[in-house]
Simulated assay, not measured.
Amino acid sequence: MTDLSFVWPLSGGLLIGLSAALYLLLDGRIAGISGLAASAFGWSGNGMSSLGAGFLGGILAGAAFAMAWIRHAEVIVSASPVLLVGYGTRLGSGCTSGHGVCGLGRLSPRSIVATILFMAAAACTVFVKRLLTGSP
């Protein structure tokens, strides 16, 4: 770990917060990834959204740029929980980015509860996985 190891997470967090704030200010909507994906593909009932597609394209382009620039990024995908994630975001009326980044910033009671539940489920999952596999 270097002295500048905080730069990438900090800059990424700042850019996520800035993009979410700009999306709210310019379009009046919450920048939750599940909602943007649904609108980009026309699954939200309002037709396809070019703004949603642009937002998702920016996320993918930014990740591709960072991977090309860093050159040592390694991505390993061992499972495909797409259906469970999609169902969960619909069931929870949003995803972690919508509730955690945007909802907490607006002090939304529903988002505060959702984020607490997301974090508790993540902590329980890690605990159980470590207990069952014996990994640190």
Rank of each mutant, 00 (worst) to 15 (best):
M1Q: 04
F6E: 08
V7R: 10
S11Y: 10
G13A: 14
L14V: 14
L15P: 01
A21R: 12
L22F: 09
R29E: 05
R29Y: 00
I30R: 06
A31V: 04
G35H: 03
L36M: 12
F41V: 03
G42E: 10
W43V: 02
S44A: 12
G47N: 04
G52M: 06
G57Y: 02
G57F: 00
I59Q: 02
L60I: 11
A61W: 10
A63D: 07
F65C: 06
A66R: 11
A66P: 00
M67F: 10
M67A: 14
A68V: 13
W69R: 05
A73N: 14
V77R: 14
S78A: 13
S78D: 03
S80Q: 08
S80T: 08
V82W: 04
V82Q: 10
V85M: 05
G86Q: 06
G88Y: 11
T89D: 11
R90C: 01
C95R: 05
G98L: 10
L104W: 14
P109T: 07
S111V: 03
V113Q: 06
A114K: 04
T115S: 15
I116S: 13
L117N: 10
L117C: 13
L117V: 13
F118C: 08
M119K: 02
A120K: 00
A120Y: 02
A123Q: 13
A123K: 06
V126T: 08
K129W: 10
R130L: 08
L131D: 07
T133F: 02
S135V: 14
